[in-house]
Amino acid sequence: MDQRISFITLAVRDLPASRRFYVDGLGWESAVDVPGEVLMFKVADKVVLSLWDETAFEAEVGQPINRGGGVAPITLSHNCATTDGVDQVLESAREAGADPVQTGAEREWGGYSGYFADPDGFRWEVAHNPGPIGQEVLP
């Protein structure tokens, strides 16, 4: 197996709310949009973020989805070239309806980051990572 990820799929409770957040709020362009089923975004070269209606997800993957309390044990990350870029993305997310939004802060690992939650509570880290690995992921 090659060392790569092709799709990241998140099961979402309310696909229209996710569409409003990502497309209308954040201004993303969908690559695939099947109302009531799935919404896909090309997020990098050969990488797709797929937002799949929870019912359709469970029908294929299996039941039940564990929706316990707290934050899902995953974060998605969007890296920026500057700390100002981090703050701008966090403000855009807030304007799109993200809740909660944690403002950017200096981190002990040497970078700067903040977080926002999408309509299903999935946490996005918005970061400036000045290290070599952080620079590798910038466009």
Rank of each mutant, 00 (worst) to 15 (best):
residue 132 P to N: 05
residue 28 W to S: 09
residue 129 N to T: 09
residue 102 Q to H: 03
residue 128 H to P: 04
residue 84 D to I: 11
residue 37 E to W: 05
residue 53 D to H: 11
residue 18 S to N: 12
residue 65 I to S: 04
residue 72 A to D: 11
residue 15 L to T: 12
residue 18 S to R: 04
residue 82 T to H: 02
residue 122 F to A: 04
residue 85 G to K: 10
residue 83 T to Y: 01
residue 132 P to E: 15
residue 116 F to Y: 09
residue 31 A to M: 12
residue 133 I to N: 06
residue 132 P to Q: 10
residue 56 A to K: 15
residue 28 W to N: 11
residue 66 N to K: 13
residue 31 A to D: 14
residue 137 V to C: 08
residue 105 A to R: 11
residue 55 T to A: 15
residue 6 S to I: 11
residue 16 P to A: 12
residue 82 T to I: 10
residue 43 V to T: 15
residue 126 V to G: 00
residue 3 Q to K: 06
residue 8 I to S: 00
residue 124 W to L: 07
residue 93 A to H: 04
residue 96 A to H: 04
residue 93 A to R: 03
residue 61 V to L: 07
residue 28 W to G: 04
residue 77 S to I: 09
residue 31 A to G: 14
residue 30 S to C: 13
residue 65 I to F: 01
residue 36 G to W: 08
residue 23 V to E: 07
residue 5 I to P: 01
residue 50 S to R: 07
residue 23 V to P: 01
residue 66 N to L: 12
residue 94 R to K: 15
residue 124 W to H: 00
residue 8 I to A: 07
residue 109 W to E: 05
residue 97 G to A: 12
residue 49 L to G: 03
residue 96 A to E: 05
residue 81 A to S: 14
residue 94 R to A: 14
residue 42 K to V: 15
residue 22 Y to C: 01
residue 15 L to P: 02
residue 78 H to V: 15
residue 65 I to R: 01
residue 14 D to N: 13
residue 112 Y to D: 07
residue 109 W to Q: 04
residue 40 M to W: 02
residue 64 P to N: 06
residue 19 R to L: 10
residue 129 N to V: 06
residue 10 L to P: 00
residue 1 M to S: 09
residue 36 G to E: 13
residue 61 V to E: 03
residue 73 P to W: 01
residue 130 P to H: 05
residue 66 N to V: 13
residue 74 I to E: 01
residue 113 S to K: 06
residue 105 A to C: 01
residue 24 D to E: 15
residue 1 M to H: 04
residue 38 V to Q: 08
residue 46 K to C: 10
residue 130 P to K: 06
residue 59 A to D: 15
residue 51 L to T: 11
residue 17 A to M: 10
residue 112 Y to K: 05
residue 116 F to P: 02
residue 42 K to P: 10
residue 2 D to M: 08
residue 73 P to Y: 01
residue 115 Y to V: 06
residue 26 L to E: 03
residue 58 E to T: 13
residue 10 L to K: 04
residue 69 G to E: 14
residue 61 V to W: 06
residue 68 G to N: 06
residue 12 V to M: 09
residue 65 I to Q: 02
residue 8 I to H: 00
residue 116 F to L: 01
residue 62 G to L: 02
residue 100 P to F: 04
residue 7 F to S: 07
residue 38 V to D: 01
